[in-house]
Amino acid sequence: MIVPLGHVLLFAGLLFVAGLAAVLLRRNLIMILIGVEIMLNAVGLVLVGASAYWRHPSGQLFALLLMAVAAAEISIALALVVYLKRSRGTIDVNRFDGMKG
């Protein structure tokens, strides 16, 4: 391990928070999805770092599975974006309040 695991985790945490901030603060649906991608990658980095720390392949394998899930998720999400743009004419999340109680 070339750096302490703590540093890897700290860096991944920074990435995650940055992604989360984008998800919460941005209004453009595309930007929110980009934020989600960054969060997923932060998790992937943690898995790889853990794999290196414990010298075990499972972390890397999980990172791969994570990538596959992310691919599935993003394909559906982008299809939804297209659908919303087509049906509502916008991708501004603050214009969607169909769940309002």
């Binding site: 989360l20 998800v23 919460l24 999340v93 603050n94 969607f96 309040d97 769940m99 309002k100 109680g101």
Partner: peptide, 17 residues
Amino acid sequence: FRTFTSGYVTHYLSGMA
């Protein structure tokens, strides 16, 4: 309490966060 359920995804997500 109804005002909590604004219908905006962002609000729910921040609640979760």
